[in-house]
Design a protein around this nucleic acid. Structure first.
Lengths: 348, 348
DNA sequence: ATGAGGAGTCGAACCGGTTCGACGGCTCGA
DNA sequence: TCGAGCCGTCGAACCGGTTCGACTCCTCAT
């Protein structure tokens, strides 16, 4: 059931069928209808590989996402979903590529073997060899996140510096003086993940500006790590009255740690951070946070990529987003009374 | 940079290069090395579309997953991640296909246009026209979940009937007599989602067996819906002392509802259900639940699909999993004292 | 009446691989 | 010494589309 068979049955040549389908040259109504009838009868669909080979476009975009070994965060799920949905509206498929242990191999697979027309990269690092590589090859790609020098590149990113700073100011305005920062895992920080670095920067500078006493922590992407991290925070400085977290997956653990330490949120302790709204709303009390607009970012990334594919010589474009802090229920004024005595246990 | 160019520079024919690469015919060491040197120099990689066209295999599997309009659950994320990872070990790429509003269109794209060698389907319904269609065409596919008549098909599924029943027995053993069931959204139940139906069945039968008083609810896949659902439960029968949920995404909301109603978990109220362990561990107290082994299921689905692709005439295979209930901290003996008076507010 | 030009169609080349049949040269057993 | 048979290589066909140039009508302006 190929184009030749359709042509034979419709009594025309293969090229006429092709033109009838693509509309790139005029075809008489009579012929077009005849062809269409045969196609409908046989349920013919043109072979994607053959088409891709002939015209050099696969109608597929690659989504390079972090390895499964890491715990996924809810944010990533929203990205993936919105990217796939947006791509579908442009008639693109999405090919998933794990940038796992052997990131180079799957990268080569995608680009070298021309499986995709363009790519969207997640989990960008400040110095990112993948990005450098793509930039050098002028391969159509869009980053979700930006490197240290994002000038000539295409990306959609979050202003983590401003976001973390906004969290600090929010807490400072409420009277908190001793606050902690819960970052992504140390491994990611060391690898240079931009959100971890820029968030930490914004936090540190804003805290200095407001003259706050701070401690910063890294924390695994799961609830038990969050709980352990909170225990460390209260152990290191029991007078801490608030924290800012970039670590969505640890959130549940942080709350649990607070509950176990007998700190009521927000009466005794305020929590805020940068978290997708859907997850901010699953915890009790709901988290006051800068909402990561993951779905919007995925959509924007696809928009940019499609534009880049359609106009290969256009100037680089990007979107830097700074969502406002959504006031929910996890922050409140710093207590004027002393916090409970260090390491006090909940009602045993 | 195609195979002809490599052949020219190495001074051999195109077919020799092809054989050197595939090993399907002997090539002298000398020639092979000469070719390899040219390939390394130029960084040549064979074009995937051309290869697919020639040998009829795309080395890609399709993953048909639910539309982004729905809220994703954590489970789905784990599936996707593990499928991609497992596929990579077999040298397959994964193409995402939203089975969204226009499910037929993307379905046709995948299969009709031969973009993929096989497919993995998620979110199976008891009567599923997609599955029927694939079965009729003998298209290599594996379902995550099973239809009402799964005999001749390939799938990996969870025994939701047994799992829900196990939850009921666990609660009944603890002395609970009035329990509620929180299902997936009504829309999905009506559409015939297998987990929703089989889970409900298992719950209902086991409860009848144990002579329990039950109410069953459907609930949106998000925290606010969970909270609202819990309010309904306590409104409808304030003497309810436990619930079973299949709805992972509503879990946070259910907990919040209980907190607002002044019910302490597990002292006043027990919660259990079927939830991926990672999410069961984010709530406080951690959820006693049948852990959905999402990662394992993704891996198994890929294993089955690859086997089916390698041995097209083998008999259908499947895996039915019944993970045990992990005892955590959200269930306890039914209180012998009367529950707090209806609609009592927490310390205001 | 005539030539320009557009509509409609066809054949052939091409995209970049894989695979089959053929063939020359060599080894080895009869 | 001859032929069978294997090794290594080549040319050509093929996969299923797209696209370009050429050709035939037909219309319309000159």
């Amino acid at each position: 059931m190929n184009i030749g068979e359709i042509a034979r049955r419709a009594g025309v040549s293969r090229s006429t069928v092709s033109y009838a389908l693509s509309g790139k040259r005029p075809v008489s109504d009579e012929t077009r209808e005849k062809i269409q009838r045969v196609i409908d009868d046989l349920g013919y669909r043109p072979n994607a590989s053959a088409r891709a080979l002939a015209n050099g476009r696969t109608s597929t975009i690659g989504l390079v996402f972090p390895p499964a070994g890491d715990h996924y965060t809810g944010m990533q799920l929203d990205f993936i979903g919105s990217v796939v949905e947006a791509a579908a509206t442009y008639d693109y498929d999405v090919l998933l590529s794990p940038s796992g242990v052997d990131s180079d191999r799957s990268f080569q697979r995608l680009l070298g073997e021309r499986r995709v027309d363009g790519a969207i990269l997640m989990e960008i690092r400040l110095q990112d060899d993948r990005v450098d590589h793509l930039l050098a090859e002028d391969f159509p790609a869009v980053c979700i996140g930006r490197t240290a020098r994002p000038e000539g590149d295409w990306w959609v990113g979050l202003d983590h510096t401003a976001l973390a700073a906004a969290c600090v100011h929010h807490l400072a305005d409420l009277g908190h003086r001793r606050i902690a920062f819960v970052n992504r895992p140390e491994r990611l920080l060391r690898a240079g993940y931009e959100s971890a670095h820029r968030g930490l920067d914004g936090f540190t500078k804003a805290a200095a500006e407001r003259g706050l006493t701070v401690r910063t922590y890294t924390c695994g992407d799961d609830a038990p790590s969050g709980q352990a991290c909170l225990e460390r925070i209260l152990h290191d400085d029991p007078a801490t009255t608030a924290l800012v977290t970039l670590n969505e997956a640890a959130l549940g653990g942080l709350y649990r740690g607070l509950a176990h330490a007998g700190r009521h949120v927000p009466r005794d302790f305020s929590v805020t951070g940068v978290v997708a709204s859907r997850w901010a709303e699953t915890v009790t009390p709901q988290l006051t946070a800068a909402d990561v607009p993951a779905a919007q970012m995925g959509r924007l990334a696809v928009d940019l990529l499609v534009e880049r594919l359609d106009h290969p010589d256009g100037p680089p474009r990007h979107h830097l987003l700074t969502p406002p802090i959504s006031l929910r229920a996890s922050t409140g004024p710093a207590g004027t009374v002393a916090p409970p005595s260090p390491a006090s246990e909940p009602t045993a």
